[in-house]
Each structure stands twice: as C-alpha cells, then as structure tokens.
C-alpha cells in the first residue's frame, strides 16, 4: 500500500465532495416536490402551511384509478414475462456452455441500446399496421417486455455467474429429475435474483412513458396522466402522485437492500 500523503487526502476529499454533491443533485428535486405536495402555498412554500388537499384531489381525479390499475397491470404482466424469459435464458447460457453464448448475451442486452422513443414508434407501427392491435394494453405490455428483458437478464446474470452448477449435477447423480433439480436445488438458491429482476421490470414498466404512450392511444396510465397534467402547467396533484410513486420505488429498493444486507438471502451460494 502506498503511504497516504496530503495530496491523496486532498484528492479523496474532492471525490467525497463530488459524491455528496451528486446525491444532493439527485435527491433534492425528489425530496423538494415531496415536501411541496404537503403544503398549501406551493409557489413559495416557506413557512409551510400544511395540507393534504393535493392528495385528496389526486384521489378524486377520475382517470387516476383507471391509470393506476392499467399501470399495475402493465407492470405485472411485463415483469412476469421478462423474468420468465430472462431466467430461462441465463440458466440455459450459464449451465450449458455453448458457442452461441456470446451472440445470445449480446441479443439479450441489445434492447438497452435502443432508445425508448424508437421502441415506442416502431412497435406502434408494427402492432398497428402489421398485427392489427393498436391501442391495446397487450401491445404496451409486449413492447415494455422487450426493454425489461434486457434489465432482467443483466440482474439475473450478475448473480448467477457465481452459482455453482455442480450442485445441480450432484442432485442429478443422486437421481433427481431435471424439474426436481430446478425446484429443489436451483430455485431456492437463485430466487433473490429472480425477485430482483421481477421488481426491476415491474418498476420500469409501471413508470414507462415513452414506450407505453405510443402503444396505448387514449388508454391512461399513471405516467401518461402525469404527462397530460404537466402539459397544462404545474399541477400540485402531480407532486402528490410523484411522492407516492417515489415512496413505492424507494421502499422496494430499500427492501431488496435490507434482504441482501441482513443475509436473509444470499446471492450465489457456493455450497460452502
């Protein structure tokens, strides 16, 4: 180890400052609108006059309930589909090494390199003109799933590269059938990765605007309601909506983090 001199300390202090500044930059806007969502005087909310009326107004918005239902539905279906595809693919590619592995991995992460706008318009054109299913929840789900597969694939891949497939072989040697091996050996070890992929896909599809927007036409989701509201100037109901969704997202992430930290679940158990 190199000795720590004063130059190092200055460098490290700068890095810490940059990190703290980044956190402030990332979180101040989110925390600020959460704060504003609870006050009456939204333009200059100091000192605050507390109120819950923006939340009440959000709840009474007619398309809010429909939008929430649609968003949850799109999120859940997307998460189920993408997790199934990604889990199966990662297991296939890691357990049975093949020369197709490289190209396959590239294919699975390729959606990351296609912008949402392009996925949105191309699936709109394809689903509407070729498949004849425009303005359906199904087309939004299918389009969101393409992007979610890439994220699920990465999440599961990152965890499963450390999985020891000899455990499966051992089970096979003792006479377990392939389905039984998966249910009794593989799944109990890798479920946190699958859960992580499921939640990430759910959150992405739930919050997606650009892909869903083009595929849904007039069907509302929470992000399209937010978009419509924002077009007509700032509406404090939107801050209430954002606060609720942010709370949901951060609870999920915190929950996952807690699971990892406390060792309740262990990623990539190696069979000590």
């Amino acid at each position: 180890m190199a000795a720590i001199n004063s130059k190092d300390i200055v460098l490290r202090a700068i890095q810490v400052l940059l990190l703290v500044a980044l956190y402030i930059f990332l979180y101040f806007p989110i925390l600020f609108i959460t704060y504003v969502s609870f006050v009456d005087n939204i333009i200059w909310p100091f000192p605050p006059e507390w109120t819950l009326k923006w939340y009440a107004r959000l709840l009474s918005m007619s398309d809010f309930h429909v939008g929430l239902k649609n968003s949850v539905y799109i999120g859940l279906c997307t998460a189920v589909l993408s997790t199934l595809f990604a889990t199966s693919a990662v297991i296939g590619l890691l357990k049975y090494r093949t020369r197709w592995r490289g190209p396959m991995i590239l294919l699975y992460i390729s959606p990351l390199f296609v912008p949402g706008l392009l996925i949105g318009i191309s699936t709109l054109m394809f689903n509407a003109n070729v498949l004849g299913m425009s303005g359906k929840l199904a087309s939004a789900i299918v389009a969101n799933t393409t992007e979610a597969i890439a994220f699920s694939f990465l999440v599961i891949l990152a965890q499963l590269v450390r999985y020891d497939w000899r455990m499966d072989e051992a089970a096979m040697v003792f006479g377990a059938r392939p389905a039984q091996v998966f249910r009794e050996v593989t799944l109990p070890t890798i479920w946190p990765a699958i859960l992580g992929a499921f939640l990430v896909s759910f959150i992405l599809a739930f919050n997606n605007l650009e892909i869903s927007f083009y595929n849904l036409g007039a069907i509302p989701t929470l992000p399209t309601i937010a978009w419509g509201t924002l077009r007509h100037g700032i509406k404090p109901e939107l801050f209430a909506l954002a606060s609720v969704i942010n709370l949901l997202v951060f609870s999920i992430i915190a929950g996952l983090f807690f699971l990892i930290q406390t060792g309740l679940v262990r990623f990539g158990y190696r069979g000590e």
């Binding site: 589909l81 595809f85 990604a86 199966s88 693919a89 297991i91 296939g92 590619l93 357990k95 049975y96 090494r97 093949t98 020369r99 197709w100 592995r101 396959m104 294919l107 699975y108 390729s110 959606p111 296609v114 392009l118 996925i119 318009i121 191309s122 699936t123 054109m125 394809f126 689903n127 003109n129 070729v130 299918v142 389009a143 799933t145 393409t146 597969i149 694939f153």
Partner: peptide
C-alpha cells in the same frame, strides 16, 4: 446435446426479442 439444452432455454426470449423488437425496427 448441451447446445440443444442451452438453445431450448434461451430461445424463447430470443425469439420474443426478434419478433417484438427487431421485426418492428425492420418494419420502420
């Protein structure tokens, strides 16, 4: 056989991506 097993597990998602991501891109 290994190749086949790997394919059987990774092909569904790959086909899904080809059909619902790449075909639309070809369409435009």
């Amino acid at each position: 056989r290994r190749d086949l097993k790997a394919m059987a597990l990774s092909l569904p998602g790959a086909l899904f991506l080809l059909f619902f991501l790449f075909l639309p891109l070809v369409t435009i």
